[in-house]
């Protein structure tokens, strides 16, 4: 692996980690809200969250690019706050990745939250637990599997993104060049040796992660069958 590829590897890891952490912070309350609300706005929020599943990443990337430009309010605000434009930076990648991986984090978690036994939460309330306490002391541990699946999928999906990164990251080595793009570069320049290494790493990583996720589900099915 060349030093540039190694840098791309670390950037990919950093991007996926930061994105996953941000998703845990904002995606968890969103999943909780979606799982429990009967509010009318849900019929709009739910498809918005799911959009990245069906949209070509380039479409999202295109709109982000426009949004990040200093001529637009978001880009302008960023420029005035940080003194540098937002587009083609690592921060831009994080914002794009968070939106792009949002459904992969929110949906498994929402399913887990929806499967919670309401009477257990009611019982906790009668034992003196306030709503936030009930969430952390009951909903979180009982949805442990949902959290693990959501975190794995969000992380893996961020590692695997390409189109949106290309649009808003600009392929700057050491700043925004991630593995999937480094791979594309190697293929473009007919460097198949390097391409093989990266492709192999990504393939094995994804396979191991998915095997882990599916093994969680299998354990769970066997347990319910016994019960």
């Amino acid at each position: 692996m060349s030093p540039d590829d190694l840098t791309a590897f670390w950037i990919t890891l950093k991007l996926a980690t930061i994105t996953t952490v941000v998703l845990i912070i904002i995606g968890t309350p969103l999943a909780w809200w979606l799982a429990r609300t009967r509010h009318i706005t849900r019929i709009l929020i739910e498809p918005i969250v799911a959009l990245p599943i069906v949209l070509p990443p380039t479409v999202l990337g295109f709109y982000f690019l426009i949004m990040f430009s200093p001529q637009n309010p978001v880009g302008e605000l960023w420029l005035s706050l940080t003194g540098a434009p937002l587009a083609f930076t690592f921060s831009a990648l994080v914002i794009g990745s968070v939106v792009y991986s949002l459904p992969f984090y929110v949906q498994p978690l929402q399913v887990a939250f929806e499967g919670l036994d309401q009477s257990l939460l009611d019982t906790a309330a009668t034992l003196g637990a306030n709503p936030i306490d009930r969430f952390f002391s009951l909903a979180v541990p009982l949805s442990k599997k949902g959290f693990i699946v959501a975190i794995c999928l969000a992380f893996a999906h961020t590692v695997g993104e390409f189109g949106i990164v290309l649009m808003i990251g600009g392929n700057i080595p050491g700043e925004t060049q991630v593995l999937s793009i480094a791979l594309f570069d190697h293929v473009e320049s007919l460097e198949f040796q390097s391409a093989h290494i990266i492709a192999g790493i990504l393939l094995i990583f994804s396979f191991i992660l998915l095997t882990f996720v599916y093994s969680l589900n299998r354990k769970w099915t066997i347990k319910t069958r016994e019960a």
Partner: peptide, 13 residues
């Protein structure tokens, strides 16, 4: 208030 339900609602974790 203490509330005991028909189905024993013990926390499984």
């Amino acid at each position: 208030i203490a509330y005991v339900f028909q189905e024993a609602q013990l926390f499984p974790h």
